[in-house]
């Protein structure tokens, strides 16, 4: 019991000091996962609405890809991006490997299918009467999508929350394309791996608490958004 008490004590002490290293790691985590979630939502929500309500060729194939993407191992997403960004790879000249941009790209790959899949599920759950009425409004395809998105708003928010939850907690993708470089590409999850490996459990736990805090606050806001609109 002394061991655990010491670890928790160390963690709380570190959080109390909240040194520059901790602040950097926290900041980069919020930026990288936040940007990836925004990109994932911007591309995934329209994709999900199209998959759920649209009738177009290739819809089935795309649905299978999205559903597979929802369960894609982050480390594999990281590896695929690594191959593209490697110095001899097709996008090697961009020089993005081991940068926050590469980490954002990798996490976006994970966020898009989640946002799309959850949104599509919500749209499919709409009664046929709703889609019939949407079509009867005589709108353009884009405007129809907006109306449908509004109708399934709580589902869309759930998709964004799930996407954020996935990217902020994953370790594989950011580790492979980011490299966990101190002061440059280290985020909460990769830092936890690092500290745990070095048996610095107090620091690892402090980072873990921060991660939980981010997840709690983001989901708190999103849940409030879902509950706010009772109509």
């Amino acid at each position: 019991m002394d061991f655990l008490r010491d670890v928790v004590g160390d963690a709380l002490a570190l959080l109390g000091v909240f040194g520059s290293e901790l602040r950097e790691v926290l900041g980069l985590t919020v930026v990288v996962s936040g940007a990836a979630t925004v990109i994932g939502a911007a591309l995934g929500i329209p994709l999900g609405i199209a998959l759920g309500a649209g009738r177009f060729r290739g819809r089935g194939t795309l649905t299978v890809l999205v559903n597979t993407g929802m369960g894609m191992p982050p480390v594999l997403a990281g590896l695929l991006l690594l191959l593209l960004l490697w110095s001899e790879g097709p996008l090697g000249s961009w020089g993005l490997l081991f940068t926050p941009q590469a980490m954002i790209a990798a996490q976006s790959l994970l966020a898009i299918p989640i946002a799309a899949g959850v949104t599509a599920g919500a749209v499919r759950a709409l009664p046929p009467d709703a889609l019939e009425q949407v079509h009867a409004l005589g709108l353009t395809r884009r405007a129809r999508g907006v109306v449908i998105g509004r109708e399934v708003w709580p589902g869309v928010v759930a998709g964004v929350a799930a996407a954020f939850g996935r990217v902020v907690s994953e370790v594989g993708a950011v580790l492979v394309v980011g490299g966990n470089i101190q002061g440059e590409t280290r985020v909460l999850t990769t830092a936890i791996v690092q500290e745990a490996r070095q048996a610095d459990f107090g620091a690892a736990l402090a980072l873990g608490m921060l991660l939980l805090l981010i997840a709690l606050s983001v989901n708190g806001v999103l849940t409030w958004l879902q509950f706010r609109e009772k109509t």
């Binding site: 009664p127 009467d129 019939e132 009425q133 005589g138 405007a143 509004r150 109708e151 708003w153």
Partner: peptide
């Protein structure tokens, strides 16, 4: 051709009635 179409059991859109009246 273009038409004005009222489906069976009209769906109540999210939002205030005045806002949903404007749709389309």
């Amino acid at each position: 051709g273009a038409c004005a179409y009222l489906p069976q059991r009209p769906w109540a859109f999210r939002g205030r009635a005045g806002r949903t009246l404007r749709l389309g």
